[in-house]
Design a protein around this nucleic acid. Structure first.
Lengths: 266, 266
DNA sequence: CGTGTAATTGAACTATTTCAAATCGAGTGG
DNA sequence: CCACTCGATTTGAAATAGTTCAATTACACG
């Protein structure tokens, strides 16, 4: 369980990285509880304390090569963000799925997807193989059950993301994404400034995730800002000013009506 | 295991319906093998032979009410198509996921999705609960493993569908959908006329699935037809005339270049 | 204080939507 | 068997949201 690379230049996950740098086995203080909170699984600490787990450190844009770790059953994202990226022959890119810290990447059918798992930031992954898993004894069954739940949860994310992509306008997609960040991001810092949501990704990645060009995404941000629904405070964070209206927009309540009202009033 | 309604006016699944009408327990001749082929699971026959399983017959547009069957762990679609449908407050509709005959709908996290499972055709569903499952004895574990695999497969479908929705043009989406039908549809009839693919859904449902308006979908069909890439034979079926080019389009190889070449040549 | 990348803005262009109208097809009743 | 009806599908023309491309600004880093 050696570390290949360390440190991250992002401020957001600093606390987590610091904890993880001490080694995964003793990451049961702070990181552990975050992971647990996200995974709804009480035995994650035991799982991470297993001997012989491989801990991967990957740089931004690194592709997760499953063939290099054929024994790995699943991987837990302990830091960074992994995206499932698909590139059309054309060159057009899209990100279809996100794995945030605490999320589990199930490798069992991974090879069936013609896309790559790409690190959108420097990432830390803990790989779990069947052998290590069997050392858990009677808890192994519970881990496998957790795997199933994790999978179902991610199927839900993917399904919801499809509804975002299918019929929503750029502004609606963005509003929906902001709430997705609010719900999924396990980072505790957001509790400090109430209503402040970390956007997790760079603009370009958000636009790939939402099926928009960066320019369009930028204009969507501008519209929400002009309409006084959100404000930018720190870099990478947005402050939700009117959660009700923003949620209506995310749910597809004739966006423009709301936006035009707001903009006319200002 | 009583049948509420029977018969379907669609020609496609006639064989299956006929087999299933004899009762699920004895559907191990034809239907069983189809289901098996789709589910990659060799014990489905044993599973379907379990006593006490609930067999649901649902009409078109019926919503699958999971609360009415709280004990059900999962359901196997034995006939018809179930779609996960989401309606925006606006009224805009989208279908984010499809369950075809042989597919397994996992109920464990079903309530976490704010969408409805809607029958897009008259459907037959076999519900499996934990009690019945435990009667399988040592095979139970294998069934649970199969559940995991099914889930992973469907996560893959959802992920791929996201890439279709995100950046592809109407024509590309349609081409992609045609191949999805070719791959996923377990109906054997398509083997009879080589190259003939059953489109599974009505135009309106395909358009909901692809995030397009019916008019746009229709124009996409027209373009593929004009370009001599597909032809319509029987109703609901398309014949693929140039699989290579169609696949290039589906993979996003600058559609219009291809289409314009083809149309110029005609 | 330059340098390079990411983010933003503007203006022309294009694909998709929208709305309205026509056509098709299955089922119904005479 | 044919006319009729209702819903699904198709076609057309105008409107619009998003893309494209080019240029500018902002920002982190050495």
């Amino acid at each position: 369980m050696s570390k290949v690379a360390a440190s991250s230049n992002r401020p957001i996950y600093e606390a987590r990285v610091a904890a993880a740098t001490g080694g995964v086995a003793c990451a049961d203080s702070d990181t552990g509880s975050d992971l647990e909170a996200n995974g709804h699984f009480s035995h994650l600490k035991d799982l991470l304390a297993l001997p012989g787990l491989v801990c991967l450190s990957l740089e931004t844009d690194a592709v997760l090569q499953h063939d290099e770790h054929p024994d790995a059953l699943f991987g837990i994202v302990s830091d960074g963000i992994v995206g499932i990226q698909h590139v059309l022959t054309d060159g057009r890119r899209s990100i279809s799925h996100l794995f945030l810290p605490g999320d589990i990447i199930d490798f069992r059918y991974f090879n069936k997807v013609a896309s790559n798992a790409v690190c959108l930031f420097p990432c830390e992954l803990v790989l779990v193989d069947a052998d290590s898993l069997s050392k858990l004894g009677e808890d192994e069954q519970e881990v496998r059950s957790m795997l199933g739940h994790s999978l179902m949860k991610h199927w839900g994310f993917a399904t919801r993301h499809c509804t975002d992509l299918a019929r929503k306008s750029a502004v609606e997609k963005l509003a929906s994404y902001i709430f997705e960040c609010q719900n999924r991001n396990p980072v505790r810092l957001e509790n400090v400034n109430k209503g402040s949501v970390h956007l997790a990704l760079r603009r370009i990645d958000i636009s790939d995730y939402l099926g928009l060009r960066p320019e369009t995404l930028c204009r969507a941000f501008a519209k929400l800002k002009q309409s006084k629904l959100i404000a930018f405070n720190d870099i990478g964070y947005v402050h939700i000013l009117n959660e009700d209206v923003l949620r209506n927009i995310a749910d597809g309540c004739s966006v423009d009506k709301h936006l035009n009202e707001q903009r006319a009033a200002s």
